[in-house]
Simulated scan of single mutants.
Amino acid sequence: MKRLIWLSTMSLAIAATSLPVVAQTQDSPQTPGTQSPELQTPGERQTPGLQTPDTPAPGTQTPGVQPETQIQQTTPSADASMGAPKIKGTSALRDANYISLYTGSQPLSYVTIMPPDYIGIGDNITVTDQSGQNIQANVTREGEKVRINFAQPVAPGSTLEIALTDLAFGYPYPSKSTFGYELAGGYTGFNREIPYGLAQFQVY
């Protein structure tokens, strides 16, 4: 009888010591190498059924999307390479003076010539361009100042030859000295004349 009681006591002791092992096995049904969702980092969690969109590599384009193009707008302006208007040169005969004039980068409407006190300019004035073509113009006067009005504005970048072939010299006539005409130009779109300076002549 004592032997049976002792065996029963031993069986109960063995069963009591094996219970925690069974409990651990039931609470942790994971296989080695896996993590529970609670132990994953926030960046590793994904909602079932959702996929992270692929990010294209640098330098690649998404199909159907055109690259952005830049449109450059140009504003019309005068060509600065033409330079400023100027008197290019002069030449003289006994009764005629010739002035070479560069018009610059704007259309030229008229030219004014102011002679010195002892020189009178007649109406016989001709104007030609760099190709020798006559330019139609009429002559008006503002006191002693002569104004050459062009029928059509002269194109930018032109070189004009102005021939003053009807001159009258009064006293004191220059001898072995220089004299000059004051020149200015009126341009399309400008409210005031542009001075060219003096067209100088040497007298011998």
Rank of each mutant, 00 (worst) to 15 (best):
E182S: 13
Y187C: 03
A163V: 03
A137Y: 04
P85R: 01
F150E: 00
A84E: 15
P153E: 06
S105P: 14
G186R: 09
G104D: 02
Y102W: 13
T90E: 02
T140P: 00
T165H: 06
D166V: 05
I113F: 07
G122D: 02
N138G: 12
T178V: 02
P107W: 01
Y110R: 08
F179M: 00
N134A: 09
P67N: 15
I119A: 10
F150H: 00
G122T: 08
S131G: 14
L183I: 09
Y187R: 01
Y187W: 04
Q72F: 12
S131K: 04
N124C: 03
L167M: 12
G89H: 07
S109P: 01
M82A: 03
I119M: 08
T103S: 15
A137C: 11
L183V: 09
M114I: 09
R94A: 07
P107N: 08
D117S: 10
A163Q: 04
G132S: 10
Q106V: 03
G120C: 06
T90P: 04
P115M: 08
N97M: 06
T69W: 07
P85V: 02
N97H: 13
S177L: 06
K176V: 09
I119G: 02
G122S: 07
D129W: 07
N134S: 13
D123S: 11
T140N: 14
P156I: 06
P76N: 15
I71C: 06
S77M: 06
G89R: 09
S177Q: 13
Q136G: 11
S105G: 07
K176C: 06
Y102D: 00
L93T: 13
T126L: 02
T128H: 11
A168R: 15
M114N: 12
G122N: 07
S109G: 10
